[in-house]
Simulated assay, not measured.
Amino acid sequence: MDILSLAGIVLALVAIIGGHLIEGGSLVSLFNPAAFVIVVLGTIAASLLGTPMTVFRGALRRLRWVFVPPPATHEELIEKIVGWSQIARRAGLLGLEDIIERETEPFTRKALQMLVDGADAETIRHAMEMELAAREDFELRAARLYESMGGYSPTIGILGAVLGLIHVMENLADPSKLGSGIAAAFVATVYGVGFANLVLLPIANKLKSVINRQAQLAEMVIEGVLAIATGENPRNIEMRLRGFIHE
């Protein structure tokens, strides 16, 4: 569980609702189902119109990364790769076949399979870097969907406010309804701006961070497999891979 993501959501709610209450507002004034429908469904509709279905599905699947990112760490991966190199030195590359059968990560499994099958280092690098570039591009497009939704949301919030004001103008003959009507109309703007800046844009940034981290781990796999293919010493492989860690 990513504690920072959870804390961010809680603090955002505390900041908006708490600030509103401190200023003397009420929770009821922030609750407007019509504005919520306009902003949320309108934002989703705009994103559907401008996004391929595969990217939209990918964005939904990766949303869980905001709170539960992939568990692999740099230290764990370095330990695994050094272990592979030690097995390869003792039993040859064919000794890694059992490792391949137990490996669940498809990218790593493919790199090891090419190594065991006897592909040369250049062939492995070319194939795996192409796959990494394609995967990273797709995942970043999925993250950018939330970024684009963050651009639509405030504008649709303004649209909701205008629609609310139209309703207010229809009731000019009854001055008692004007104040509450105008306040309700501007709730749509609050929803639009808040949805964008407190939810959608932070989600996009968090996903980009996770994707960059996953790409770095994949680069470590490539470097490690190539080092094993050229017969490098396990200690040298570990030192090389630790160059990826900057924390």
Rank of each mutant, 00 (worst) to 15 (best):
R135K: 10
R64N: 10
R135G: 15
R57T: 06
G83H: 10
A143E: 05
R57G: 02
T54L: 08
F56K: 01
I87A: 09
A133R: 13
R89F: 05
L77A: 03
G118T: 07
F56M: 12
L93E: 02
F36H: 00
V82Q: 11
A45I: 11
A59H: 07
L172N: 11
A127M: 12
G164S: 13
K177N: 14
L48W: 10
G42A: 06
R125M: 08
E97Y: 08
M53S: 06
I156G: 02
L112R: 07
V168L: 11
T73K: 15
T104P: 03
D120P: 11
M53F: 12
A91S: 13
V82G: 05
A91H: 08
L112T: 07
E75C: 04
S148I: 03
A143V: 08
I124K: 08
A91R: 13
F107N: 04
L172V: 12
R62S: 13
F36K: 00
I158S: 01
I182E: 14
G95R: 09
A119E: 13
R90W: 01
R144T: 04
E170Q: 14
E139K: 12
M149V: 04
E79P: 00
T73F: 09
I182V: 15
I38T: 12
D137Q: 14
L94W: 00
A59P: 02
A111N: 06
R109S: 13
M169L: 15
E97T: 05
Q113F: 03
A34N: 09
G157M: 12
E105A: 07
V82H: 11
A127H: 09
L93K: 10
A91Y: 11
G50E: 03
E76F: 08
G92C: 02
A142L: 06
T104E: 14
V55T: 15
G58W: 04
S85C: 10
M53C: 03
E122S: 09
Y152D: 00
L165N: 07
T54I: 05
G151K: 04
R90I: 09
I124R: 07
S180T: 11
T123W: 09
G164C: 12
R141A: 15
R125G: 01
F67I: 14
E131R: 05
D98G: 15
A45W: 07
H126M: 11
R135Y: 00
L112H: 07
G50I: 01
A143S: 14
A34S: 13
G179P: 05
L49T: 05
L172I: 12
W84I: 08
A59D: 04
